[in-house]
Design a protein around this nucleic acid. Structure first.
Length: 593
RNA sequence: GCCCCCGUAGCUCAGGGGAUAGAGCAUCGGUUUCCUAAACCGAGGGUCGCAGGUUCAAAUCCUGCCGGGGGUACCA
C-alpha cells in the first residue's frame, strides 16, 4: 500500500496527452506540510503553466478536470497561485486499513527486483576497547541492513576489522613487557585491554597530548618495530597475533551482543586481504591505473594534485590497496548490485578516490556509496578522542543506560502508584527486561534520529530522557496499546483473521489511519537516502497521531461494538507498525512498562 | 594554498525550489473519579551567518565574503 504512488498514478494518466513527459510533474506531488491543505498536494500547475503558456490556476483546473477521483479522492481544491490540494476519501482510507489488517508485511511490498547489497559497517580496530566513536557506524549499518532485508533485498554484511594495524604493535610491546601472566591466564580479554591502555598511557604521558611528540616517543618506536615484524612474517609475532585475535573478537562480540547487533555474515579484516595486495598493485600497474611516484612509491593519480598511494616507498601497502582488494573480493564472491560503506565523514575524500580508482580499474555497473556520518561530540562540542582515553568505553555507556532505564522505571512506577493509576506490578525479570529495552533503545534512537551527516552532541541526559521524540516514548505508546487488548480480552490474531470494517468518522481516527498507511512511503524514503532518521520521523508522526486517538477515542468504552472493533483494528495496526519500525532500528519493545 | 562539509528559536536539531519556516528540550500556564500521567492541551520565543544573483516562487539553487569543522601520497 503506497498512497503517494496511487495518487501519482492518477496524475500520470491525467497528464498524459497534456505534456510529452509527465514524470517531472508527477514527482511534484507530495504530502502537505499542513493538514489544512489536505493530505497531499500537487505543485505542478505553476511550472506546467510556463510550459503550456497558460495561467497556473487554469492549468490546475484543467488537470483537476482530467483527474480520475473515483473511490480515492475528494474534490480537489485549487489554492493560492495554483496549488492542488488533495484529500483522500475517508472510506477509501478505512478500506485500505482493513486491507492490511491480515498482512504480515503491513502493506509494504517486497522490492522487485531484489538487489544484492554488500555492506561494510562497524569495522573497529581490534585490540582496543570499543568506544563511543564506534557506535554510529555500528548502529546505522545495523539499521540499514534490517531495513534493506525487510524490503526484500539480499544484504551481505561484512565487518571490515582493523586487525593488521599499529595497535597490534602496541599489544605486542605490552605483552612482552607489561604482561601479568596470571591475569592473562584467567581473563585474557581483560588483561589485553589493560596492557593496551597501559602502553597508550605511557606514550601519552610523555607526549602531553601532542601527537607528533607522542610519535617520537621511544616506546612508540618499539611498537612500530613490532608491527613491522608482524607484517614481515616474524614467527613469534604472528603466533601471538593468532593467539590475540580470538580474545579481541570475543571482546567486540560481547558488546555487539549487549547492543543487539545482527550477526555479521563475514568478518574479513585487513589481514584477510593482505595476501592479495601484491597482486592488486601488479594489476593496477599493468592496466596503467597506477604509476610510479616519488621515491619509488606506487600511486594512482586521481587528478592533478590529488593522488592515492597504493604502495609506500618502503614497500608496505596502504588502506587504499586493501580497500581495492576488498572490492575485488566482494565482486567475485558476492556479485553485489551495490557496495555500501558506513564510515565517518572524514574519509569522504578517501572513498571518492577509491571509487574513482575502482572505476578506472574496470569496476562498472555496481553502485558504490559511502554512507557518511558526522562525529559524536563531547559536552563541550568537540569530537571525543578515541586515543587519549578521555571517552567512556562503549560497554560502560551501555550499562549506564540500562541502570538509568531501571531508575526511570522505578521513579515513574512510584509516581503513578501514588497518583492512583492502574500500574502493573512486575517481576524483577520483567523490570530488567524493561531496563535493557529502554536503556539500549534510548542510545540507538538518539543516534538514529539524527540526520546522519550531522555531528551530534553525546549527552547521557538527553539520550536517556523519556520526553519527546525518543525510543521510550514509542515504547510507552506500544505498552499502553497492548494494555487495551489485555483489558478488552481480545486476541489480536482473531481480529486480524476476520477484520472488521473500519470507520473513520473522528478526525483522530482518520489521521491515525492515514499515518498507518504511510509506512511504505517512509521506508522507501529512508532507503533512498540511506537515512534511518526518515523512519524515526515517521514514528514520531505516527505516535503523535496515535496519541491524539488514544486521548479522544475510547476503545473499550466505544459507543457501539462495531466502533470498538474498528478502533481495535487501528490499535492493532499501530502496535504492529511501532514494533516493526523500532525493530528496523534494532530497538525492542516490552508488553508492559 | 587547494578541496569537501556545516552555519535555522536560549539549547539540541528537522526541513535542501512551493503556501504564515517546524519539532524536541528548556521557560510559563492548564489537565488525573476516564483503555498505563514515561501522557495530554495551551503560550511566548526567528533579519534561516552576511551581501548579491537566478526564478512566477529561495532557508533551499548560483557567486562572493565572514565564522566553524574536516581532508590534503607514505596512519586507517
Amino acid at each position: 500500500m503506497n498512497i503517494l504512488h496511487t495518487i501519482q498514478a492518477r496524475f500520470r494518466t491525467a497528464l498524459t496527452g497534456l505534456v510529452p513527459d509527465p514524470e517531472p510533474f508527477v514527482a511534484m506531488i507530495k504530502p502537505t506540510q499542513d493538514a489544512k491543505h489536505g493530505d497531499y498536494q500537487a505543485n505542478c500547475a505553476m511550472s506546467l503553466a510556463k510550459t503550456l503558456g497558460k495561467k497556473p490556476r487554469d492549468v490546475a483546473q484543467e488537470l483537476v478536470d482530467r483527474l480520475d477521483l473515483s473511490s480515492l479522492l475528494e474534490k480537489p481544491e485549487i489554492a493560492g497561485p495554483g496549488f492542488i490540494n488533495l484529500r483522500l476519501q475517508s472510506g477509501w482510507l478505512g478500506q485500505q486499513a482493513r486491507g492490511i489488517a491480515n498482512d504480515e508485511r503491513l502493506g509494504v511490498a517486497i522490492a522487485s527486483p531484489a538487489k544484492t547489497y554488500a555492506i561494510d559497517y562497524s569495522s573497529p580496530n581490534v585490540a582496543k576497547p570499543l568506544h563511543v566513536g564506534h557506535l554510529r557506524s555500528t548502529i546505522i549499518g545495523d539499521a540499514l541492513t534490517r531495513l534493506l532485508r525487510f524490503l526484500g533485498h539480499i544484504v551481505i554484511t561484512d565487518n571490515h576489522l582493523g586487525d593488521w594495524g599499529t595497535q597490534f604493535g602496541i599489544l605486542l610491546y605490552g605483552y612482552k613487557n607489561l604482561l601479568n601472566k596470571d591475569a592473562y591466564a584467567k581473563e585474557p580479554v581483560r588483561e589485553l585491554a589493560r596492557i593496551y591502555v597501559e602502553v597508550r598511557n605511557r606514550i601519552a604521558q610523555a607526549g602531553g597530548g601532542d601527537d607528533e611528540e607522542e610519535a617520537r616517543h621511544p616506546i612508540a618506536d618499539v611498537c612500530r618495530a613490532e608491527t613491522a615484524k608482524l607484517h614481515h612474517g616474524d614467527v613469534e609475532n604472528n603466533q601471538l597475533w593468532q593467539e590475540f585475535m580470538p580474545h579481541c573478537l570475543e571482546e567486540i562480540h560481547e558488546v555487539y551482543t549487549k547492543l543487539g547487533i545482527l550477526k555479521f555474515n563475514h568478518e574479513h579484516g585487513e589481514s584477510f586481504y593482505n595476501p592479495l595486495l601484491p597482486g592488486v598493485v601488479d594489476s593496477l600497474l599493468k592496466s596503467k591505473v597506477a604509476e610510479e611516484g616519488d621515491g619509488g612509491a606506487i600511486i594512482i593519480r586521481i587528478s592533478k594534485d590529488n593522488v592515492s598511494l597504493v604502495r609506500k616507498r618502503d614497500g608496505a601497502f596502504t588502506y587504499t590497496t586493501s580497500d581495492l582488494a576488498t572490492i575485488q573480493y566482494r565482486l567475485e564472491h558476492f556479485q553485489p548490485n551495490a557496495m555500501l560503506y558506513v564510515v565517518d565523514f572524514r574519509q569522504t575524500q578517501h572513498f571518492a578516490n577509491l571509487f574513482e580508482a575502482a572505476k578506472r580499474w574496470g569496476v562498472t555497473g555496481v553502485e558504490m556509496t559511502h554512507i557518511s556520518f558526522g562525529s559524536v561530540l563531547g559536552r563541550e562540542g568537540k569530537p571525543i578522542s578515541t586515543r587519549k582515553g578521555d571517552g567512556t568505553e562503549l560497554i560502560d555507556l551501555i550499562n549506564q543506560a540500562v541502570v538509568r532505564g531501571l531508575e526511570k522505571y522505578e521513579a515513574s512506577h512510584a509516581e503513578r502508584t501514588a497518583a492512583g493509576h492502574d500500574v502493573p506490578e512486575l517481576t524483577d525479570d520483567a523490570k530488567s527486561a524493561i531496563a535493557e529495552t529502554v536503556g539500549i533503545g534510548a542510545i540507538k534512537y538518539a543516534d538514529l534520529s539524527q540526520n546522519r551527516t550531522s555531528d551530534y552532541k553525546f549527552d547521557y541526559d538527553k539520550m536517556l530522557a523519556t520526553e519527546g521524540n525518543t525510543a521510550t516514548y514509542m515504547q510507552y505508546a506500544y505498552a499502553r496499546n497492548r494494555s487495551i487488548f489485555r483489558k478488552a480480552d481480545v486476541d489480536p490474531a482473531t481480529l486480524r483473521a476476520n477484520p472488521p470494517s473500519v470507520t473513520l468518522d473522528s478526525p483522530f481516527e482518520r489521521a491515525l489511519a492515514l499515518q498507518l498507511l504511510r509506512l511504505e512511503e517512509a521506508l522507501l524514503s529512508a532507503v533512498a537516502e540511506y537515512q534511518p532518521s526518515a523512519i524515526t520521523a515517521y514514528l514520531w508522526d505516527l505516535a503523535k497521531a496515535y496519541s491524539g486517538f488514544f486521548q479522544n477515542c475510547p476503545v473499550i468504552q466505544a459507543e457501539a461494538d462495531a466502533l470498538k472493533q474498528s478502533r481495535l483494528l487501528l490499535c492493532d495496526l499501530t502496535a504492529r507498525i511501532l514494533k516493526q519500525c523500532l525493530g528496523l532500528l534494532g530497538i525492542n519493545v516490552v508488553e508492559r512498562m
